[in-house]
Design a protein around this nucleic acid. Structure first.
Lengths: 156, 156
DNA sequence: CGAAAACCTCAAGTAATCTTGAAATCAACC
DNA sequence: GGTTGATTTCAAGATTACTTGAGGTTTTCG
């Protein structure tokens, strides 16, 4: 229980990271991590692998694909142990990314709110679906948005 | 061009909604929408179908799966045309959902920020991956977080 | 009328991220 | 040393949301 070995089995790493063994093997397959092996060919993970798994999961939560994570990891120096500065450089991008996501969500929310206000769900005015305005050739102005007749024919 | 027919072909609906024909057919397959047919079996969409497509895409942007969207649509009255109130009820849930997403992201960001501050990426302290705290039996206190030796063994 | 563009169905493929299962081996414990 | 639980590999399957292709029909337009 409290033995604190400096190598973890895949089961232990799974327990402690909350990532299924199958996922860990998968990460290895795609080159995101590696493992030492016992004489009997079982994986043994050095302790710092926990950090690597943390990195991967955190990056995923920021919305990176495994491919992108691989790329991000590749920008870390392979010759030497990454410094705090290296790590900060990489994770800085995440903060930016989160900020962008926050902005997107805020925008979506405000659009949705005005949609609820008018109750229309018009493709033209409610740009939930099309971030860029696009052409539709209906000749009806904004007034129709509020008319009851235009509402909710969603279920036909 | 400006004929404004009250039925659209799949190509027209695709153009105006920005959704590929194949996707529209797919939505029909999974029961998200329906279409009238010509004598020659081609789809013809009543104009309000645009709104339904808008609904679907908007819901997707809020993070709903097509299954969830189907469920949401099912809560709309099938006998009558949904009212503005019906529609607002449904989309209210979206706003809540967006708010939740915003909260999650803010939390993630603040955690990430403190992680960057210490540069550690410890599974225990940076709960990016595990929202709920969990047990790890290392006996080392917070102090190690700042030591250089613990940093960035991400690339082993 | 006849050609071209658009549409039809159905099956299969794609992409990402894993999970499951089978059959066999390894490690740990008494 | 044997039993049991953990681990191994490899192939195939799961899920979501579509796209692509083949082979054939319909619509439209000149």
């Amino acid at each position: 229980m409290s033995r604190l070995p400096d190598h973890l089995t895949i089961g232990e790493l799974s327990q402690r990271s909350g990532v299924a063994p199958s996922a860990l093997r998968f990460y290895e397959d795609v080159g995101l991590m590696s493992a030492e092996r016992t004489g009997g060919n079982q994986r043994r993970y050095p302790r710092h692998t926990l950090r690597r798994v943390a990195f991967i999961r955190a990056a995923q939560r920021v919305g990176l694909s495994l491919d992108e994570i691989n790329t991000a990891l590749a920008t870390l120096p392979s010759g030497r142990t990454p410094t705090k500065a290296d790590w900060q450089r990489v994770s800085r991008g995440w903060t930016d990314r989160i900020d962008q996501q926050l902005r997107d969500l805020e925008l979506l929310k405000s659009k949705l709110t005005s949609c609820i206000g008018c109750g229309c769900l018009s493709l033209r005015t409610c740009l939930l679906t099309n971030p860029d305005d696009y052409e539709g050739d209906r000749g009806v102005g904004p007034a129709w948005l509020a008319t009851d007749e235009n509402l909710g024919n969603i279920r036909e």
